[in-house]
Computed example of a mutant assay.
Amino acid sequence: MTWMPLPALRTFVEVARLASFKKAADSLNVTPTAVSHQIRKLEEQLGIALFERHVRRISLTREGARLYPVLDEAFGRIGEALETVRRDASQSSLVVAATMAVSTFWIGPQVRAFRAAFPELGCRILASDDVVDLSGGDADLAVRFQRDSDPNLESFDLAPGRFAPVAAPSLDPQSLQETPLLAFEWASPHPEAPDWERWWRSAGLGRLNSGRIVWFSDEAHAVQAAMGGQGALLANLSLLGRELATGVLQRLDGPVISYGQFRLVRPRGRKSSVQEAVWQWWCSTLSGRA
């Protein structure tokens, strides 16, 4: 097998792509004379003409047209491989975005396990109830509670949303009619999102006095108030699996409203081996946590 010089092959791909010696020279940051020399040398080594020269334009010969897509794909794969190696070498930290509540009750408790699994990789938890722009590089991945999936992101379903009243064990579960009702404001309100009035009707408890509801601006503080015995919270049971299992909170009797889905999401596209390993770890860990 006769090996062709890579610079000449790369030059051929650029000339074929741009259909111009001058434009290829500008793209490669060399002179048009250097481009012509590389192409002539390549044609001599192959023993075939790759371009037909016309007065004001060039075009690929039949042989050149066969060669171009193969080399173009090959250089594309080389570029992807080099980018993967570069990302692997530069990936020294990970940013995980989640709401305040998910950061508190899901992500935070997994920090020690994450450090054990990836001791060389730093981790930053970006806790915000605002939707973080993953495409802009603000985070590597995020846990989101969504009604509908985002087609622009790769996603993994973690747990469905299941809403029912919860309260601290110190609260009498039979006294819901007199107990303060805790609620949190949805970051992205939707008409179908569960609320106390909807649950109250489903439970057949008559008309609800909305003045009894104490509103929190974020879900995490509403959960903490419920854990502190301050009232009953219409909570997402999937979020609080550990707290319910350990008895920190108890689920009160009544219907369960299904709504939404917890998903782990990340930008689409090729990922480094480190990014893929981290993604798989969080998928496994958080789906088990839920």
Rank of each mutant, 00 (worst) to 15 (best):
M1P: 13
M1F: 10
M1H: 13
T2V: 14
P5R: 14
P7K: 07
F12D: 13
E14A: 15
V15R: 10
A16C: 09
R17N: 01
S20N: 11
S20P: 05
K23D: 10
A24K: 07
A24F: 03
A24Y: 06
A25K: 07
D26Q: 13
L28V: 01
P32Y: 04
V35Q: 10
E44C: 01
E44A: 14
Q45G: 14
A49Y: 11
L50G: 13
R53K: 15
V55W: 12
L60C: 14
T61H: 15
E63D: 15
D72C: 13
F75S: 13
E80Q: 15
V85Y: 10
S90G: 01
S90R: 12
V95H: 04
V96C: 02
A97D: 04
A97R: 01
A98M: 05
A98K: 08
T99V: 00
A101T: 04
A101E: 03
A101K: 08
V102S: 05
S103N: 04
S103E: 03
W106I: 03
Q110V: 00
R112T: 01
A116N: 09
F118Y: 06
G122Y: 01
A127I: 02
A127V: 03
D129V: 02
D129C: 04
V132D: 04
L134A: 01
L134K: 03
S149F: 03
D150T: 04
L153Q: 07
E154D: 11
D157I: 06
D157K: 14
L158E: 03
A159N: 00
A159R: 12
P160Y: 05
P160M: 07
G161E: 06
F163W: 14
P165R: 05
S175A: 12
T179I: 10
F184D: 12
W186I: 00
H190W: 09
H190V: 10
P191D: 11
A193P: 08
P194K: 05
W196G: 05
W196I: 04
S202L: 14
S202E: 12
A203C: 03
A203V: 06
L208E: 03
L208M: 06
G211S: 14
S217Y: 07
E219A: 15
A222F: 07
G229F: 06
L233Y: 07
L234F: 02
A235K: 02
A235G: 06
S238V: 12
L239P: 08
L240D: 08
A245M: 08
T246C: 10
L249S: 10
L252C: 05
G254S: 03
I257K: 11
G260S: 12
F262T: 08
V265N: 14
R266L: 06
R268W: 03
R268K: 15
G269D: 09
R270N: 13
S272N: 11
V274N: 12
Q280W: 04
W282Y: 14
A290V: 14
